[in-house]
Amino acid sequence: MMQIDCPYCGPRAQVEFAYERTLDSIVTLDMPAEEAVSRLYARANPRGLDDELWRHSFGCRQWLVLRRHRVSHAIVSITEYAP
């Protein structure tokens, strides 16, 4: 179980957090339909670092961006989400 260093709450166990999606699969409301569908179904899924949107659901409930290595699970950075 990963340990996630919430910028608001400090280091907490992964069970307190909910994974939402990668940043590049966020479908904005003004996006053309074709691009929206492509973002939903064609994921980059890199073997390496990726930016992910998480929420501290059982804590401060803030939305966070984790830059995380998808093989080693190393978390390079955690920041509050800013669209």
């Binding site: 939402e20 409301l29 939305w63 989400y81």
Partner: peptide, 13 residues
């Protein structure tokens, strides 16, 4: 609850 929070804070802040 999570969906509404996502819609507010991520899609339409």
């Amino acid at each position: 609850e999570a969906h509404l929070s996502y819609a507010h804070h991520v899609l339409a802040p």
